[in-house]
């Protein structure tokens, strides 16, 4: 493969097609879809029992009432249906099989191709939120915040999605150097689940730990949208909270660009 990458005129249609293809492909794994929803329901039950037991014998800590924590947990689990999709894992798979070389020869931007593929996958998993929400409503009462908070939550969720997407993208690009990056990625995933507030609100972390986790980029993924949703970030704090998320997004986008450029060079060198 030569260093001269093909020059082409940018058109949007191919990428829409890629997204549609990814959507259709994911839809064929009906079974996986079913397990996803099933395990989500089990987890909603589990977390509901855990919080009920904790709140039964103790006062509400950090001013978070039982109905707020249950809402937090269910919304976090529904968000995870979308956020746990690793949109660019194809990079890792294609690297192992070596087929990524042909993607670089096509008259498209490989990075955009992987992004649109990820988008298609996300859309399919996004649809799953509907049945999951309906089942969740049978099990738990979920608070609905005022429209302003709901709107801020939506914006914040999109930003969190993008931060998460770029983080995964960077991790998948690690495979250009190590080839076996799956375990590293799982490690980051487990840490991220804990540090992003997906499992427990970051406000429950004690003392100095709380300040640290709130300052880490992981907080931009789950914690910020969720705290807006349950009202722990008041309307006066929206702008600041959203700006911090935008800041992290820019950091990861910049990192992603640098890594991708280096990866491209590296691939060319490896491929001879």
């Amino acid at each position: 493969m030569s260093l001269a990458l093909p020059v082409y005129r940018f058109r949007l249609e191919p990428y829409l097609e890629f997204a549609k293809k990814a959507f259709a492909r994911e839809a064929t794994y009906r079974f996986e879809v079913f397990t996803n929803v099933g395990s989500l329901i089990l987890r909603i039950y589990l977390m509901r029992m855990v919080w009920l037991a904790l709140y039964a014998q103790n006062a509400a800590p950090q001013g978070i009432a039982l109905h707020q924590i249950l809402t937090y947990t269910v919304i976090a689990l529904l968000m995870s249906l979308i956020l746990e999709v690793d949109g660019t894992r194809m990079i890792r798979e294609k690297l192992r099989e070596g087929t990524i070389a042909t993607d670089f020869m096509k008259p498209i931007s490989p990075a955009l191709y992987f992004f649109s593929d990820g988008l298609g996958q996300t859309l399919l998993h996004g649809i799953l939120i509907v049945p999951s929400l309906l089942v969740a409503l049978l099990m738990v009462h979920i608070d609905v915040p005022p429209p302003a908070a709901l709107a801020a939550f939506a914006v914040s969720f999109v930003l969190g999605y993008l931060v998460n997407f770029m983080l995964n993208f960077c991790m998948n690009c690690v495979a250009f150097w190590t080839l076996e990056s799956f375990a590293v990625q799982l490690i980051v995933r487990w840490c991220s689940d804990l540090l992003s507030g997906q499992i427990i609100p970051l406000l429950f972390f004690p003392g100095i730990l709380q300040q640290i986790v709130l300052a880490l980029p992981f907080a931009a993924i789950y914690s910020t949208p969720l705290l807006i949703y349950i009202g722990k970030i008041p309307p006066g704090g929206y702008v600041e909270a959203l700006l911090v998320q935008v800041g992290w997004l820019l950091v990861f986008a910049a990192a992603g660009t640098v890594i991708w450029r280096a990866a491209q060079r590296r691939l060319v060198v490896q491929g001879g």
Partner: peptide
């Protein structure tokens, strides 16, 4: 991470 999550919860709540 599983144990840390338990530890954090039980900082806020004395017992389950």
């Amino acid at each position: 991470t599983a144990l840390i999550a338990l530890w954090i919860i039980l900082q806020e709540f004395p017992s389950m």
